[in-house]
């Protein structure tokens, strides 16, 4: 078994009075997609914040490439090759594609007082990197980010992360705000990144999307890891049931059936 790129061992996080996360152990390998499933409030966001350096875990250890690490800041995290892409791409709507791709790491040309931001190069690279992820409709680096579709914005953010050396990519609900067609775009991009040897953590509550691209799955419920399995080991129904908290679902079903029975008499179907 190869060394995982990222390993969490018994990671926990408690805020005053409440345990947001308890005993989370996960492994992510290069060229694999780990799907982190969970309902709203299951602790996905807390875990992402720990992995992107905004929160420090209260217990447990994090290892990158076999070395234990402590993240001090979001910048620190990116130095370890970990990048997080948020739901809306975390990009700058009114900046051009080229400009936003290189925010904070602008390429320059010229010297001394005439040193200037090489916007031409920035646009070229941004477009090229997006195209390498299969986005062919964006051909002009001067286009405003806000004029891109949701999927294209995700692609821009993912391309940016990969270009700047991220080998662990955390995608926070990348498909949640997208239509069906755009979502398949993003899933394709996830597969592209996977093929490049990137370890992807795909955070979602969409079981269907997760099953299409995932190699490995972890389900969070109330801050704990409820299940952990490989591709093909569970059916979609099993996962959905688990996520929704099987019993709660069964209760709800019974309740709805009862409602329907009583509603039938009022004439509302």
């Amino acid at each position: 078994m190869t060394q995982p790129l990222l390993r969490l061992t018994d990671v926990g996080k408690s805020f005053v009075g409440t345990n947001a996360l308890e005993d989370i152990s996960l492994e992510v390998h290069a060229g694999q997609v780990l799907c982190l499933l969970g309902d709203n409030g299951a602790g996905k966001s807390t875990l992402i914040k720990i992995l992107s350096g905004f929160h420090a875990p209260t217990s447990g250890t994090i290892e990158v490439d076999g070395q234990p690490v402590v993240f001090k800041s979001p910048r620190d995290v990116s130095a370890y090759g970990i990048a997080t892409v948020h739901q809306f791409g975390g990009t700058f709507q009114l900046m051009s594609v080229g400009r936003s791709f290189f925010v904070g790491v602008e390429p320059t040309k010229g010297w001394g007082p005439f040193k200037r931001f090489d916007k031409g190069l920035a646009g070229e690279i941004a477009v090229r990197e997006m195209q390498s992820l299969g986005i062919t409709r964006v051909t002009d680096g001067k286009r405003l980010v806000g004029s891109l579709s949701g999927g294209e914005r995700q692609a821009l953010a993912i391309a940016r992360a990969v270009y700047f050396g991220a080998n662990i990519l955390i995608l926070d609900e990348p498909t949640a705000a997208l239509g069906v067609k755009e979502a398949t775009h993003v899933l394709r991009i996830i597969m592209q990144a996977r093929a490049k040897g990137v370890a992807v953590i795909f955070v979602t509550h969409n079981v269907l999307h997760a099953m299409m691209v995932g190699d490995h799955f972890a389900v969070l419920i109330h801050g704990r890891k409820a299940d952990d399995f490989h591709k093909g080991e569970r059916t979609r129904e099993q996962i959905t049931d688990l996520m929704a908290g099987g019993e709660a679902m069964a209760d709800l079903e019974a309740e709805l059936a009862a409602l329907e029975a009583s509603a039938g008499s009022t004439g509302r179907s």
Binding site: P74, R75, S78, F92, L94, G104
Partner: peptide, 15 residues
């Protein structure tokens, strides 16, 4: 432009 566009993302990008 980046700070005005999205302060948190700009900070995360190391500005």
């Amino acid at each position: 432009l980046a700070v005005g566009g999205d302060k948190e993302s700009a900070r995360a990008a190391g500005i």
